[in-house]
Amino acid sequence: METTTAIRYVRGDATSPQAKGAKVTAHIRNDLGGWGKDFVLALSRRWPEPETAYRRWHRERAQNDFALDALQLVQVSPDTWVANLVGQRGIRTRRSAGAPVRYEAIDRGLQTLAEHALVLGASVHMPRIGCGLAGGRWDRIEPLVAARLTARHVPVTVYDHD
């Protein structure tokens, strides 16, 4: 399912990026410090460091840049990083009004991700970020990925899990 945005779509697991060289696996986190469900479970099974770093980042937020749209890059192997991008306000509950996704925060976080990817010479790998528990719509997020990453010649692969 190739689109004009030059985003490559594959069936597979974003925790096993299909690329040579430097690579970043990106995903969306909430601003509450919660890690518990969805894609992060697979991420934590593969690499424990991103969860540990994210929880520390949130816990010490009074002394750092933790906020909506912030990005934390965690190196998990010599050529692989995980990008914890804060793009969700709170979590969805039974009493929630609307989805917790914050498109503006994802947009700004992707801009920061592009800067890091360009410096590292890395490709970016992700599930359909913001579309799981965050409740976002891919038809709103895909143009952000295209504008912030592929338009700057950062290769992006989106993984649809079987």
Rank of each mutant, 00 (worst) to 15 (best):
M1S: 09
E2K: 11
E2V: 09
E2H: 11
T5N: 12
A6F: 01
R8P: 05
R11Y: 08
R11P: 01
A14H: 00
S16P: 00
P17I: 04
Q18P: 03
Q18H: 09
A19D: 06
K20F: 11
K20H: 04
K20G: 09
A26F: 08
H27K: 13
H27D: 09
I28W: 01
I28C: 07
N30V: 14
N30K: 08
D31V: 13
L32V: 07
G34H: 11
W35K: 00
W35Y: 14
W35Q: 01
G36D: 07
K37H: 06
D38P: 00
D38S: 14
L41E: 04
L41F: 10
L41V: 12
S44G: 09
P48M: 09
E49S: 07
P50Q: 06
T52R: 15
T52A: 13
A53W: 15
Y54E: 03
Y54A: 07
R55I: 05
R55L: 07
R55S: 09
R55W: 04
W57N: 02
W57G: 00
W57V: 00
H58M: 04
E60H: 08
R61P: 11
A62I: 10
A62Q: 13
N64C: 07
D65R: 05
D65P: 00
L68Y: 04
A70R: 05
L71H: 02
L73T: 00
V74P: 05
V74W: 10
Q75L: 03
V76W: 03
V76G: 06
V76L: 08
P78I: 04
T80K: 07
V82N: 08
A83L: 13
L85S: 01
L85R: 01
Q88W: 05
R89C: 10
R92Y: 04
R92P: 02
T93A: 09
R94A: 15
R94F: 14
A97M: 04
G98H: 06
G98N: 10
A99F: 01
V101M: 13
V101Y: 02
R102V: 15
E104S: 15
I106C: 05
D107L: 14
D107W: 12
D107I: 11
L110P: 14
L113D: 00
A114H: 02
E115V: 09
E115W: 05
E115N: 05
H116P: 00
A117C: 14
L118C: 07
V119M: 08
G121E: 01
G121L: 14
V124C: 11
H125V: 01
M126D: 05
I129V: 11
I129D: 12
G132M: 15
L133R: 13
L133F: 01
G135D: 10
G136C: 07
G136I: 07
R137T: 02
D139F: 15
D139M: 11
R140W: 01
L144Q: 08
V145L: 10
V145I: 12
A147P: 00
T150D: 10
H153Y: 06
P155Y: 13
V156N: 08
V156S: 07
V156E: 05
T157A: 03
V158L: 11
Y159F: 04
H161F: 13
H161Y: 15
D162G: 12
D162F: 15
